[in-house]
Amino acid sequence: MNITGNTIFIPGSTSGIGLALALALHDKGNTVIVGGRRTELLDDIASQHPGIDTVQIDTTDPASISSAAASVIDKHPDLNVIVAMAGVMHVEDWHHPDGFLNSAEAVITTNLLGPIRLIAAFIDHLQKQPAATIVTVSSGLAFTPLKITPSYNASKAAIHMLTESLRLQLSDTSVSLKELVPPSVATDLLPGQRESSFAMPLDEFIAEVMQILQSDPGGKEIQVERVKFLRYSEVRGEYDDVVRSLNESDPN
């Protein structure tokens, strides 16, 4: 994926990592379409950042995904990059069903079914482009778990393996797969995370992501240095120690 000259759709990017990445990619000379559920946020983004297009989309709703995809492709026929950014993270207690079932269903619907449905909506179009990229978003917690967020960890582990599998299956097409693997970043993903000393400052994260994209355009995973503590804990033979350290610390 070249860092400039693309037309990029980023659903789930009205705040946090998604919005910051959208702005950074736009500044690099890409055409960027921001997607989100709340029209007032989309209107604010469009007014504050001329040149960025917006579309309403709810990635938990198959009909909304289909409608948004048709609109984006119609208005931007040269679309060649999808970033499946939308995600939620909930603290859960699995001792009793009331502590996790509704949350788990919501997390899986957003974090796993959402990207699957997005890919289904755009895959025919992307394969017609000379070069196209699907960017998925997993997490360091896909590789080393945080005990209070089981469904989130599982959804991101599934995204990692989905990405690995699609990279193999689509190797005979013009579509490449790239996986963004964030650490804890100072956003509102969980209450208190924005103020956490454990979380990586958002501007530092985006700057490092953009540097990686520029220096390694063909790379399979976008890994900032801070996430490698989690990403490679098992490879280093330190999995149990890192799990213990992560879950004894206060990540928020």
Rank of each mutant, 00 (worst) to 15 (best):
V224M: 11
E105A: 01
A132N: 10
I134W: 08
A69P: 05
D58V: 00
M161P: 01
L162S: 03
E179T: 09
L141V: 14
V243F: 14
D203G: 09
P130L: 01
N111A: 03
Y232S: 11
N2R: 10
G87L: 12
M85P: 04
L202G: 14
V235Q: 15
I65E: 11
P62Q: 13
L126F: 11
S174E: 07
I8P: 01
I159W: 06
D93R: 02
L19C: 13
P62D: 13
F143W: 12
L146P: 03
L180E: 11
I65R: 13
Q223S: 06
K128G: 14
N102W: 08
Q48H: 09
I123N: 03
T133A: 02
T31K: 15
L162A: 04
L146H: 13
V107K: 03
I17S: 03
I82G: 07
T31N: 14
L126Y: 10
Q211H: 09
N6W: 01
A70D: 15
T39F: 00
S176M: 12
L168G: 15
A86P: 08
Q214Y: 05
S249M: 10
M89P: 11
V32S: 09
A199P: 07
V227Q: 04
V242W: 04
E221Y: 15
L42V: 01
S139W: 06
A121S: 14
T14C: 03
E92T: 09
F143V: 05
E195A: 11
G5Q: 07
N252A: 10
G36W: 00
D43G: 00
T60C: 13
V242N: 08
Y239G: 05
P145L: 05
H160G: 05
H76F: 15
T149D: 04
T14A: 02
